[in-house]
Each structure stands twice: as structure tokens, then as C-alpha cells.
């Protein structure tokens, strides 16, 4: 049983990490890989659209106490679907933890690398379009 579980996990890992992530724009022109963010918030909107799937979360700023609505970009729907995402994976009101890269323009905008369900810690896959070709 442990053997089968290990093989299964390895296969899934290989599949997820090897999936092609291609964008229509330069990642470096939009995001700064050194500006890593990790935010917790509740989902307010999901755009399951090309060229990139987006989700939006309300995040309470610990310093100001204000709620900021962040937008996070992922890969194209057809690409992240190969990683297990569907248009209903995230639901309005879900509380999630997002690890990603902030936009260079300093807005509440980022590129999601990893998304986790806050209550269970379940990882929903990597949706980043980093290291892609425009």
C-alpha cells in the first residue's frame, strides 16, 4: 500500500511540475520574482477566462486594518486544468492562502504560485505563469 501511495504521489508530482505554462506576455516585465507575497483572504471573484484565469481575494492589511482586494493571475484555464483546476475549484467565500509574486507596479496584483485552502491546508496546485514565453 505504501509502495502504491509513493508511486502515485511521484507520478502526480511529475505531472504537476512538468505541465507547460505559457503566457502571451513577458513575466519579467510585469512581476518581480523578489517581491514574494503570502496572503490569506476570502475569495470574492473568480474569472475562468483566457488568457489567464484570475481570482480575487479580500485581505485585511495588518498594519492599516483596511481590507484590500487582491487580484491573482494564473495560467490559461486549459493549462491549469491539466493540474486539476476547474472553474469551481475556488468558490466565493472560500478562505485561501496564496503564495505568489507581486506586480512590479506595486498594485494589489500578483501571480499565484501556490494556493492552499486555509482550513485544511490542501494545496490546489501551482498556477504561476512564471518562467514562460510571451
Amino acid at each position: 500500500m505504501r509502495f502504491r501511495t509513493a508511486v502515485f504521489c511521484a507520478l502526480i508530482l511529475g505531472f504537476v511540475l512538468a505541465a507547460p505554462l505559457l503566457a502571451h506576455h513577458s513575466f519579467a516585465a510585469e512581476y518581480d520574482s523578489t517581491k514574494v507575497v503570502k496572503l490569506t483572504g476570502n475569495v470574492t471573484r473568480v474569472d475562468w477566462q483566457n488568457p489567464h484565469a484570475y481570482f480575487y481575494i479580500d485581505v485585511k492589511n495588518a498594519e492599516t486594518g483596511r481590507v484590500e482586494n487582491w487580484a491573482f493571475e494564473m495560467g490559461a484555464p486549459s493549462v491549469i486544468a491539466r493540474q486539476g483546476w476547474t472553474k469551481t475549484t475556488l468558490k466565493i467565500g472560500d478562505v485561501i492562502i496564496v503564495e505568489g509574486t507581486r506586480a512590479k507596479d506595486g498594485g494589489f496584483h500578483g501571480n499565484a504560485r501556490s494556493v492552499y485552502m486555509a482550513d485544511t491546508g490542501k494545496k490546489l496546485g501551482a498556477g504561476s505563469s512564471e518562467a514562460t514565453t510571451p
Binding site: 502571451h24 506576455h25 513577458s26 516585465a29 510585469e30 474569472d47 477566462q49 483566457n50 488568457p51 489567464h52 484570475y54 487580484a71 493571475e73 506586480a103 512590479k104 507596479d105 498594485g107 496584483h109
Partner: peptide
């Protein structure tokens, strides 16, 4: 739904 241009 191209939202990138404004952030490049």
C-alpha cells in the same frame, strides 16, 4: 480578459 497590459 487580458488584464496584463496595464501592469507591464
Amino acid at each position: 480578459n487580458n488584464r496584463d497590459a496595464e501592469h507591464l
